[in-house]
Structures are given as structure tokens and as C-alpha cells.
Computed example of a mutant assay.
Amino acid sequence: MDGGFGGGGATISDMYQRSTKLFIRIRDGLDRLDRLESSSSIMADAPPELSFSIKKDIAQVQSLCADMDRLWRSIASKGQRDLWKRKVEVVAEEADSLKKILDGYLLRHQKRTMEAKERAELLERMNGDSSHVLRIFDEEAQAMQSAQNSHMMVDEAYNTGVAILSKYAEQRDRLKRAQRKALDVLNNVGLSNSVLKLIERRHRVDKWIAYAGMLFTVVVVFLFWRWTH
């Protein structure tokens, strides 16, 4: 019983030849899947019929393998029996390997499909929320412009205060020079000490007035800066 018969009168040799032809068709289909997956075109995708056909052929090989595994055990010759045992094992290993390749492609295809769907949903949400996004950008731009205007106002107030203080300092220096000249003149004409003391008191009063003016200016600039912030 070297040939071994299965259901319907098919021998183990017939089943092996059938599995070999199926392997050729399966590998050709997997090559097509690989070329389509490696294509630079985003739209290049295998039709579902191709992967379904490959999956069907692999299942048929596995069914043949189960039948051959049953038949080789009934072969009378030990040499032939060992030979067919090894052949059936190779067929089973090849079928498992090709099934893993197909499963890997199907898994990657499913992942690409989900990513494409998520991108489409994201774009749809972005298009729907475009007015909201633009409004947020506009509000942020207005806030930045307002902050810039506040900084400009503070800088202007600071520069104005510095200019006023500089004017006070110049006026104080001119007043001191004028008072010194006046004192020199009065000393030269022999004015009394009481008149000189009166002039000195007036000088001190004018000095405190100048200091008070500078302090007031600093306070005004500080309050304006706090108000703008």
C-alpha cells in the first residue's frame, strides 16, 4: 500500500502534488500583496478578494496536510513511510510559514485602515472647529497687543518722569548758582546778617519744594505703572 489512498480514491502522492500547486499560487498571491504594500502610492491597496483567496488556499493545504498525515501512517514500507512523513512535515511547516506572512499583512492592513480613519476624523474635526481655532488665535493676538500697549505706556511714563526729574535737577543747580551770585553781591554791598539769614531760609524752602516735586513725580509714575499691570 505504498501509494496510500484517501477519501474519493486520491493517493497521498496526488494530495502532495495538489498542495505543491497550491503553494505556487499562494506565493504568487503573497508577492502581489508585497508589491502593493511597498508601492509609493498611498492609494495602492490589495483588493480584499486577493487576501481572501490566499487564505482559502492555505486552509486547503492544511486540510490536505491533515489527510496526508493520516495516510502516510498506513504505508507498508518503512522507507516509504519515513519519506512521506518528512514530506508531510515540510508541507505543514511551509503552510504555517505562509499563513504567518498573510497574517502579518492583514494585521498591517488593519492598522493602516484604522490610521486612515483616525486621520479622516481628525481632519473633519479640525475643519469643523476652524472658526473656534481662529477665534482663539484672534483673542491671543489681541491680548498680546494689549500687553505691548501697556508696556509702551509704562515706558513713556517712565521716560516722562525721568525728564521731569532732570528738569528739576537743572533748575536746582541754576537756583543754587543764582543764590550764590546773589549772596556774593549782597556781601559786597554790606547787607546785614539778618537779611542773609532770610535769604538762606528761602533757599532751604525752595530746596524742599524741589525735593517734594521730585518725590511726587516718582509716586505718580509708580502708581501709573501699577495701574497698567
Rank of each mutant, 00 (worst) to 15 (best):
M214R: 01
D206S: 02
Y158Q: 15
I75R: 00
S53K: 04
V185I: 12
S97K: 13
L134P: 14
Q60M: 06
L165V: 09
A169Y: 14
G3F: 12
G3L: 15
L106S: 05
D103I: 01
D57A: 06
S130F: 15
M144F: 09
R135Y: 09
M114L: 12
I164C: 10
F222G: 06
W225V: 05
E156A: 11
S146K: 04
F23A: 08
V205W: 05
S40V: 01
D206P: 02
R226N: 10
A92C: 02
E156T: 10
Q110I: 06
K100Y: 11
S166M: 06
F5L: 13
F137K: 09
A182C: 08
H132Y: 13
I58E: 02
E118K: 13
E156H: 07
V189P: 00
R201Q: 10
D138R: 00
N127A: 14
V221M: 01
D45E: 15
D2R: 04
G4Y: 00
S146F: 12
D96Q: 10
S166V: 05
H109D: 12
A157V: 03
R18Y: 13
E124N: 08
R125W: 05
E49P: 00
K99Y: 07
S38E: 01
R119T: 14
R70T: 14
W72P: 02
R70V: 09
I26G: 00
I54G: 00
A169C: 11
G128C: 08
F52Y: 13
T160Y: 02
Y16Q: 07
R86A: 10
S38N: 07
S19P: 01
Q80A: 12
T113E: 14
R18C: 06
S74K: 09
D173T: 07
Y158S: 15
E200W: 07
D184E: 14
D129Y: 09
L134N: 15
H151R: 05
K181F: 10
I54N: 01
E37C: 04
A116S: 09
D173K: 12
